[in-house]
């Protein structure tokens, strides 16, 4: 199901964070949002995730032009924030189990709700995700708080990738990741994008263009241009920066 953002405006007081933003997001594939700090990338992700309500404009299902509300957007999307927001005292295994089985983790007396959250995670989450976590030397049975920033970032990204929702929204997913882990994460994102929509905000323009199918360039809250990444070189974009 593709999403259509039509003339979306977001204002915080006198500041315009998104200015008449219109774009049709496909049902699957990778869309990169690039732009300088304050360009509106994170705000666009906030709108797509249902975290904020646009001041004006519409979010519609492309097929039938039906309005999509915030609750529906929240149900459809998983969001990776710029900052690592993780439960510090859980181990990666416990956290990943919750992400994998949110229904069982929601109900105190549901069948399986008392499933033990500890144990071996292998077999519960995709092997490729386990490999990425291994590359970052994430220790599955140590509290998340005791891991490094890069390891926590890898875990946060891994958790977002295994959420079973049709839209993944990733805000600077590769920050703090080593080159090796970053390459592995890119491969995982490509695989996920075969069956669902991945929208990510990124400052590393060559990396964004290498990974994305479509690139959106934002400046001062406005969508300046959008294009198929394969048909351009990143030097073409310099006019929009600095």
């Amino acid at each position: 199901m593709s999403l259509l953002l039509h003339e979306v405006n977001v204002r915080f007081g006198h500041t315009t964070a998104l200015d008449r933003f219109s774009f049709e997001f496909p049902a699957a594939g990778i869309v990169a949002l690039i732009g300088e700090n304050g360009a509106g990338k994170s705000t666009a992700l906030d709108v797509l995730s249902g975290f904020i309500t646009p001041t004006s404009g519409e979010i519609l299902e492309s097929a039938n032009r039906r309005h999509i509300g915030r609750a529906s957007l929240r149900n459809r999307s998983a969001r990776l924030h710029q900052a690592n927001v993780l439960p510090p005292l859980l181990t990666p295994t416990e956290y990943l189990r919750v992400v994998r089985f949110p229904e069982k983790a929601t109900w105190l007396v549901a069948i399986g709700g008392q499933t033990r959250a500890i144990g071996n995670i292998t077999g519960t989450i995709p092997e490729a995700v386990v490999r990425m976590l291994d590359k970052a030397s994430v220790e599955f049975h140590r509290p998340i708080a005791s891991h490094s920033l890069g390891q926590q970032r890898t875990l946060a990204l891994a958790a977002t990738l295994i959420v079973r929702k049709p839209i993944l929204l990733l805000d600077e997913p590769f920050s703090s990741l080593s080159d090796d882990v970053s390459r592995h994460a890119s491969e995982l994102i490509r695989t996920e994008a075969e069956r669902r929509l991945v929208v990510f905000a990124e400052h590393d323009i060559p990396h964004a263009m290498e990974l994305a199918g479509t690139v959106l360039v934002l400046k001062a809250g406005q969508l300046k241009t959008s294009f198929a990444a394969a048909k351009h070189h990143y030097s073409d974009l310099l006019q929009y920066f600095g």
Partner: peptide, 28 residues
């Protein structure tokens, strides 16, 4: 050591994080 306890830990950290992974913070 239940899954519900782990889910509640996610809710305690951030309701938005909990929502994004498919939990229902208010229900928890």
């Amino acid at each position: 050591s239940s899954l519900f306890a782990s889910g509640a830990a996610v809710v305690a950290r951030s309701s938005e994080l909990a929502s994004t992974v498919g939990l229902r913070p208010l229900a928890t």
